[in-house]
């Protein structure tokens, strides 16, 4: 084959270009740590990496929701268990009052019951992160208020559930965990409505019975508060179940996050060891090509004859 000037320069240029391109790509992959720098590098992996990134985001949002629900659940649990303690105290006050005699003592009992009522009001209006935990979705509204003269309780919240997404939903609305217990379901709704009963009102009634010394009413209150105590403990069990579910979900989410991160890394991260080896091979080849080019440059008749 005749080798001519145009040929050798064109081919040399193309080859040098190719090798430089290869070195450029590899060094870009190593320095960025990513083997995908544009969709065209590997369209399928690129779109999978994209979806995986968004899946990770969604899992992180689930995790944040689980943490939120756990915090909320803890606040609910502690409010309810304190409330249950208060009910026990109220019961024992009622018990002591039935066996005690004398005006001065009943005044003491009444004021003790008053203290319990105050604390109970605080617990029923407990907040988590500035949100009322027992007012349904109306978390900016204080759920319970009491008319100090009649003892009538008004429930200002609603019965709706605050739902947060804690897992992928298969069907519409699925994967949602209800975070809250609505106040009316736990403590009872407004007592002004027909058939209304309320634990706070029950404590108020005890206090009234104690100050008036109405022993029949005190006996009634003792029974009612016993029922209330059972009711609160049932709610505590419900919360406990939800909480253990959340803990499981948290563990699962953490595992899934680790998995997906591995998947994502497989799609988009550079295998640094392999890329480095390839780079050094490409460099050697490039150096050799450069050397041959300068060598060939000297290999012409014009430089030899004089």
């Amino acid at each position: 084959m005749r080798i001519t000037l145009g040929m050798s320069t064109d081919e040399t240029l193309l080859n040098l270009n190719d090798q430089q391109d290869q070195i450029n790509t590899l060094s870009q992959q190593i320095s960025s740590g990513k083997q995908l720098n544009a969709a065209s590098d590997n369209p399928y992996s690129w779109s999978q990496a994209m979806n995986t990134t968004q899946t990770l985001r969604e899992y992180n949002s689930f995790l944040s929701n689980v943490n939120f629900a756990t915090g909320w659940g803890n606040a609910t649990e502690s409010a309810l268990s304190q409330f249950s303690t208060l009910l026990t105290q109220a019961k024992s006050v009622a018990e002591s009052a039935t066996s005690a005699v004398g005006q001065s003592q009943s005044a003491t009992f009444a004021s003790e019951a008053g203290g319990i009522l105050q604390q109970a009001m605080v617990l029923a209006n407990a907040q988590y992160n500035g949100q009322y935990i027992f007012s349904g979705t109306a978390t900016d509204t204080q759920p319970f208020s009491m008319d100090s003269t009649t003892g009538d309780v008004t429930y200002n919240g609603n019965s709706s559930a605050i739902g947060v997404k804690t897992s992928v939903s298969g069907v519409s609305g699925g994967g949602t965990t209800a975070v809250n217990l609505a106040g009316d379901a736990v403590f009872g709704g407004s007592t002004t409505t027909a058939g209304g009963s309320n634990m706070l009102k029950d404590i108020y009634d005890l206090q009234q019975a104690l100050s008036s010394g109405d022993s029949a009413q005190i006996g009634n209150s003792f029974t009612t508060l016993g029922n209330d105590f059972n009711q609160v403990n049932n709610q505590l069990t419900t919360i406990g179940t939800t909480m253990s579910g959340l803990t499981n979900q948290q563990t699962a989410l953490n595992t899934m996050l680790t998995n997906e991160k591995g998947v994502l890394s497989n799609y988009q991260d550079t295998d640094v060891a392999a890329a480095t080896v390839k780079l050094s091979t490409a460099q050697t080849a490039f150096q050799a090509a450069l050397q041959v080019t300068t060598l060939l440059d000297k290999l012409n008749l014009a430089s030899i004859i004089s």
Binding site: Q131, T139, D140, I162, K165
Partner: peptide, 9 residues
């Protein structure tokens, strides 16, 4: 999702 945690916020 954040709004679901605090609908009135």
């Amino acid at each position: 999702s954040t709004l679901a945690q605090n609908p009135t916020g």
